[in-house]
Write a protein that binds this DNA or RNA. Structure first.
Length: 293
DNA sequence: AACATACCCTGGGAGC
DNA sequence: TGCTCCCAGGGTATGT
């Protein structure tokens, strides 16, 4: 499930592989919501456009074009992007589509470049999308207006974070950090990891936490996201990128998908899976104790 | 405004 | 074996 580190990993890959290329055409396959764009706009502002930059905000990729339009991409949970050209490179949700002949049954969009290389957008559950917007209007997209600070920016300090998370004082801390308007880019994996590191039970109400704990939580969020990027994200299994690397963050995970495996602090105890904020949630029952209200 | 829940969608696994 | 049910989950919509 692509979270900030996975999307950043993809951004870096695409930045190297597609900036400077010219788009010849795009196709979409049996999934209109994956590419909900006006065909006239596509013809005018996508076809023939040169890619000038690939940016990221929260979990959203922004592929800038020299037509003053931007292809805005959200992979949601099961989206992946695969570049096929002189080399093959892919990132996002780990499935066999990363290595299979493309397009396949999960390909929703393909973009052909004039040099005959291609970019495939595959998405098992069809929740993700690629939308064409005028670049100047991207900041006005409702999501962009609401989204919180980039956690890895120096400007995202505890003085910024604490008042934002305190607006969600009566909800669970896990729901609060998953809320993109509180802080950008945190998803289920890094939420569980950062809460374990901070020794906070995910179902703790925000109001039960003092500022010192919230500052520590922010520090751990920054650390797990930075480590995730360093590791190339959590796109696991045996999928290899152009440099022969695979995303291996999950090898370093403390709790995520480690149900019934030993806690790294308490080897005689096992990680438990519970449900918080409607999400599967991993905790150590000793490290993370729910405080009395 | 804050909070909880349903929904979108498909495939994999559990249980019968 | 084949059926049904549940789960995965980011973000939005809806109702309280």
């Amino acid at each position: 499930m692509p979270e900030l580190p996975e999307v950043e990993t993809i951004r870096r890959g695409l930045n190297r592989l597609i900036v400077g290329k010219t788009i010849a055409r795009a196709r979409h396959y049996d999934s209109p919501k994956s590419f909900p764009n006006d065909s006239t706009a596509v013809a005018h502002f996508l076809y023939g456009a040169h890619i000038t930059a690939v940016r990221r905000r929260a979990k959203v990729l922004l592929i800038d074009l020299d037509t003053r339009y931007t292809l805005v991409v959200h992979l949601k949970m099961t989206g992946q992007l695969v570049f096929v050209g002189a080399e093959r490179w892919g990132g996002g949700h780990p499935t066999d589509s990363l290595i299979h002949e493309l397009p396949d049954r999960h390909t929703r969009v393909s973009i052909d470049f004039t040099d005959s290389s291609r970019l495939f957008f595959n998405d098992l559950r069809k929740f993700g999308w690629m939308k064409l917007y005028p670049t100047a209007e991207v900041p006005d997209i409702p999501f962009m207006r609401r989204v919180g600070p980039e956690p890895l920016d120096d400007s995202c300090s505890s003085a910024v974070f604490i008042p934002r998370i305190r607006r969600r004082n009566n909800t669970t801390v896990k729901a609060a950090i998953l809320d993109q308007s509180v802080i950008a880019g945190v998803g289920n994996i890094y939420a569980d990891e950062s809460l374990w590191l901070t020794r906070i039970h995910p179902a703790t109400r925000v109001r039960m936490l003092n500022d010192r704990q919230l500052a520590a939580l922010l520090t751990h969020i920054k650390n797990v996201l930075a480590l995730g990027i360093e590791m190339g994200g959590s796109t696991d299994k045996n999928y290899v990128d152009a440099e022969g690397n695979r995303g291996n963050y999950l090898q370093f995970a403390h709790v995520f998908r480690r149900e019934n495996q030993p806690c790294r602090r308490h080897p005689d105890l096992t990680i438990q899976k519970i449900r918080v904020a409607g999400r599967g949630t991993h905790i150590c029952p000793i490290c993370q104790v729910l405080p009395l209200e």
